[in-house]
Each structure stands twice: as C-alpha cells, then as structure tokens.
C-alpha cells in the first residue's frame, strides 16, 4: 500500500520533468527520420527502418531511465524531502521500491507513446500490423526494468552526474560484453581465457533482450531463449534492487 502511494507520487513528479518530453521528442524525431536514413542504404529498406526505429526506442528509453532514475533518490535526500517521509511509519525498502515502481510506471507510459508512434507508422507504411514488433518492445521494456534498478542503485550513494555516468557505463558494457565471450574462444586456454570467461559471466549481458534482428528479419525465436532472457532480466533486476535496499537500509540522512 505504502509502495503504491509513493509510486504514484513519484509518477506525478517524474511526468513533470521536462527532460522526459525532450527525450520523447527526439525519440519521435528519430522514429520519423529513420526513413531518410533508409534511403542511404542498400537492401530491404522497410526492415532497416524497423530496426533503426526499435533501436531508437531502446536507446531513448534507456536515457529516460538513466537521466530520471539517477536523480530520483538523490533529489529526495538533497532537497531533504526524505526527512518527513522516513519519519512516517514506512520502511526504507518501501520508499525505495515506491520510487522504483513510480519510474517504471512513467517509463511504461513513455514506451507506450513511442510504441504507438512506431506501430502506427509501420501500419500506415505497410498496411500490416506486426505482432512480433510488440514482442520486441516488451523485451526493450524488460531491459529498462534492469537499467532503472541500476540507476536507482547508484542514486542511493552518488550524485546524479556520477550515477548517470556509471549507469551509462553499465548500459554500454552490457551491450558489448558478448564480445568478451567471443574473444575468450579465440584466446589460448590458460589464465587469460579463464579471466575473460569470468568477466563475461560477471558482467551484465543486455544483448539478451535484443531480439530486434530476429523480429525484423522474421527469423525463428526459440521460446527457450525468450524464457531465459525474461528470467535473466527479472532475476538481475531483483538482485540489483536488493543491493540498493541493503545500501539504503543503513544510510544516515545527515
């Protein structure tokens, strides 16, 4: 109940943030202008347009999660609004989860807006409603669940600028960590290979949520992979949130 009250208040606060609309505007612009980009390429233009649009939604969604998420908890502490909140009969984890779900609600609304523009445009251009595109959007959203948790984790102990950099680092590493696995296979067995294998296991693999190629090019999507990616996202998110709660639980609000 308390989590819901805080989440609704966070949602009200986040939707008044101008940066959200700036990013939404750029996302809409990227979705619309992707047709121009497609003209410069060779191949099935519509497929490239869809791919670029899905990638834009993913990137702008992540930026929204990072830029708003990293300020959420920090602002409460900095502006001292947290003093009156924590003095009420609420537990600290309820506060943190309320903030998290409030931002998730905001991102859901933003994703729905971007998704509507995207699916609407594709419908107009091709005359076909593609349900698989919706699936790709769901997995982008799963990725946002994790990135938001990471942004909130950093926001518990660091300033918004540093937290944004850390979260952006997490996002970039997450999308390129698969190359470590590829590299490990090419390296001679030994310490180097073990190190690379450990690193690729520890670092997040956000490419798990990237099913754009399969969706756009109508390639088969094994249910096992979809289930694995969903479980990976949910468990990783739960782990990061638990870490954030642990840090927040013993923090002094000076």
């Amino acid at each position: 109940m308390t989590i819901k009250v805080i989440a609704v208040n966070t949602f009200k606060e986040a939707v008044r943030d101008r940066i959200l609309y700036l990013l939404l505007f750029f996302a809409a612009a990227a979705i619309l202008l992707s047709r121009v980009l497609a003209m410069l390429t060779v191949g099935d233009r519509m497929k490239i347009v869809k791919d670029v649009r899905l990638a834009s939604i993913s990137v702008f969604g992540a930026l929204m999660a990072i830029l708003i998420g990293t300020g959420l908890v920090y602002k409460e502490i900095e502006k001292r609004t947290i003093f009156t909140l924590i003095s009420k009969p609420i537990r600290r984890y309820e506060f943190l989860l309320g903030k998290y779900f409030g931002l998730i609600l905001t991102l859901a609304v933003m994703m729905a807006s971007m998704g509507l523009i995207f699916l609407g445009l594709v419908l107009v251009e091709t005359g076909v409603f593609e349900g698989r595109l919706l699936l790709a959007l769901v997995y982008v959203f799963l990725e946002l669940l994790l990135i938001t948790a990471v942004a909130i984790l950093f926001s518990c102990f660091s300033t918004p600028i540093l937290s944004s950099l850390f979260s952006l680092g997490f996002y970039l590493i997450g999308h390129f960590s698969w190359s470590l696995e590829a590299l490990a296979k090419k390296v001679q067995p030994g310490l180097g290979r073990t190190l690379l294998a450990v690193l690729s296991a520890v670092l997040p693999d956000l490419e798990n949520f990237n099913i754009r190629t399969e969706v756009v090019h109508a390639l088969p999507l094994p249910a096992a992979h979809l289930a694995y990616a969903a479980a990976y996202g949910i468990l990783y998110t739960a782990f990061v949130l638990a870490l954030a709660v642990l840090i927040f639980r013993r923090r002094d609000f000076v």
């Binding site: 208040n9 009200k12 606060e13 008044r16 502006k79 001292r80 609004t81 003093f83 009156t84 003095s87």
Partner: peptide, 11 residues
C-alpha cells in the same frame, strides 16, 4: 515531525 527549513514536493 516538522524538520528544520522544511522542503516539500513543490510540484
């Protein structure tokens, strides 16, 4: 509780 120099959600 009323804190010193209270700041509240100004939205």
């Amino acid at each position: 509780f009323l804190p010193e120099n209270p700041y509240f959600y100004d939205h």
